[in-house]
């Protein structure tokens, strides 16, 4: 376990307010090899993978966001990783896949059913009513800002499966996420299902989304996302107390 004093700050699903503090500023440390980060606390890797699996199985409209580092066939390693990515996806009933092909500030507007963009990731999450998501293969500097924006404006449980050091601003993160860990993640999903976690969308496969859905390339019917849980009182209005800004009228 890392010799880092734990922070009392909890990185929980938002909305956190327009500009949440970066978790690292609030003292949340990064996990080391063999560890994971769950809601701002260091745990062992197996526990982090199980928490991620439970979130993806039980929260509404769970979605995988593959970034450029897994989406594009850069090299043999990426091509191999894609196969294991889909192995994980097939263990998650009702999972949606929306790609982040690059980081262009797409103009005039994004199609939130087809794509997620790091400049305004909240649009895709709002539009598809996503309450749990995985970022994988997104370059760290974009993942950092994306995760904060998602935490700021949505009630989505973010999971960052990072090939480097992990991300403090995700609710759940595991570092050095290679093919071996993708296999362990698939096994963790199988294990929690075996241990009694009932998937919210039991019996479903991957839900075609975006272009695949619109064009029916995958042969699936158009399936709108389920309404989010906000109305049912599951999510608090704001995750933390909002900071009071300067009183501009004060003498």
């Amino acid at each position: 376990m890392a010799q880092v004093k734990e922070s009392s700050y909890a990185v929980v699903p938002g909305p956190e307010g327009i500009l949440p503090p970066a978790a690292t500023i609030m003292g949340v440390p990064l996990p080391e090899e063999g560890e994971g980060l769950v809601e701002g606390k260091i745990v062992n890797e197996a526990e982090a993978l199980e928490k991620a699996a439970i979130a993806l199985l039980t929260r509404k409209n769970a979605t995988l966001f593959p970034g450029p580092l897994v989406l594009w066939g850069w090299n043999d390693h990426t091509n191999d990783k894609a196969k294991y990515f889909f192995d994980v996806a097939h263990e998650l009933p009702g999972i949606r896949i929306i790609p982040m092909p690059d980081y262009r500030p797409i103009y005039p507007k994004i199609d939130p059913e087809a794509v997620i963009n790091p400049c305004h990731p909240n649009l895709t999450i709002w539009h598809n009513k996503i309450e749990a998501c995985v970022f994988i293969g997104v370059h760290c500097h974009y993942a950092n800002i994306t995760l904060r924006m998602v935490r700021a404006g949505t009630n989505c449980y973010t999971i960052a499966l990072c090939a480097e050091a992990g991300h403090e601003d995700a609710m759940c993160s595991v570092p050095n996420f290679d093919i071996e860990k993708l296999v362990r993640f698939r096994d963790a999903i199988i294990k929690v299902k075996k241990n009694g976690i009932k998937p919210l969308y039991e019996g479903k496969g991957i839900v075609p989304t975006g272009w695949a859905q619109i064009s029916r390339l995958s042969g699936g019917n158009i399936e709108k996302p389920e309404d989010e849980s906000v109305g049912a009182g599951v999510t608090a209005a704001f995750a933390h107390e909002l900071e009071t800004g300067l009183d501009e009228t004060a003498e």
Partner: peptide, 9 residues
């Protein structure tokens, strides 16, 4: 990468 072609916009 293999499998992702259909998911691209």
């Amino acid at each position: 990468a293999p499998g992702f072609q259909d998911y691209l916009p």
